[in-house]
Design a protein around this nucleic acid. Sequence first.
DNA 1: GCGTGCCCGTGACATTCGTCATGGGCCGCC
DNA 2: GGCGGCCCATGACGAATGTCACGGGCACGC
Lengths: 201, 201
Amino acid sequence: MIRVLLADDENLIRSALRALLSLEDGIEVVAEAATADEALAMARSSAPDVAVLDLQLPDRDGISLAADLHAQVPGCRTMIVTSHGRPGYLKRALAGGVGGFLPKTVSASVLAQVVRTVHDGGRYVDPELAAEAISAGDSPLTAREADVLELAAEGAPVEEIARRAALTPGTVRNYLSSAASKLGAANRHEAVHVARRHGWI
Amino acid sequence: MIRVLLADDENLIRSALRALLSLEDGIEVVAEAATADEALAMARSSAPDVAVLDLQLPDRDGISLAADLHAQVPGCRTMIVTSHGRPGYLKRALAGGVGGFLPKTVSASVLAQVVRTVHDGGRYVDPELAAEAISAGDSPLTAREADVLELAAEGAPVEEIARRAALTPGTVRNYLSSAASKLGAANRHEAVHVARRHGWI
DNA sequence: GCGTGCCCGTGACATTCGTCATGGGCCGCC
DNA sequence: GGCGGCCCATGACGAATGTCACGGGCACGC
């Protein structure tokens, strides 16, 4: 019997996934969590075999949660389901030891199959997502460029970004400028959109 | 027996909802669609009693789909479920004759209950969402301000916005400026974020 | 009919932003 | 050690943007 933990902030999805997985032979849902912290606590007490995580939880993302689970819950494998299949996330997830990565557009039978695959130590990523990730390639941004661009995402003026990043306004503009040109954007706001679409920030 | 149509682009959610609703007495899922067009076509042929729509479908939003359903499928009531409970959407949905509006964080039993309520001609909106909508109030933006702000959402320069809106660049800047000041934003990009958060664009 | 609010435009000004050149410090690699 | 890449900064220039004042046209309600 594969013991599964579900983490998703949407109650409806969670109970629905539980219903779907419970119909499968050899799969049992032993815990449900709405937040990453909750999931971590539950995983420690119930020691599931596989954790099915939403990419975006209210407190932080599923990738960092997966890393914590690997560190703190021995024998617990992880997989991620998401609504928004950004290529960058997939790459980060795989680097973080996640065993499966699926969009929520897959069918229930695929989901169950992947749970089994991941449980057996295998890996599975959605073919379409994989293709996207390959064609999208790595992020061309340097670490600082990505940082600064992320701070620019809310539309804050350069000066505020500079304060929050502990940088000079001039430096911020240089980074934003170089990020925008790398992304083929006319300005930083368009750059934010491009980077978001690729999952680079 | 209440005949239900499901429209959601995420296969997983759809089959999960089907599983959940099928467990309920007196509810039967008669059709599933992944897009608005598909949903419309299916509704015409299967004439469901209640259509459960995702707010965001790939081709257009659930609110306009609901309007079409009301017009083209007599006797079909509609309700909307969504991941992102923006107040503005709720208001628009209600104005469009939608009978129920729920976040996906609700439990399965609430969902089933609301399906029944809507089927009986009643209305239900999530209390939390309702509170948000009331506190957020109406959009302070005029029609044109909202239009222009929407075009500004992708980070396009003023000149392009002007072309797409068939306006003078100067006028565009005036609208953006007034929109930003109404929204308490320092610039148009921040204004876009604020307006998005409230569901005003 | 008159005020009010929205629509659309112009012109001018100060500020912010994008771009470029340039430089120093740091690290890793050949 | 030299080279390249990243990090951080400065200064300066032109372009884009935000702000303000002002104008006319139009629809609506009192």
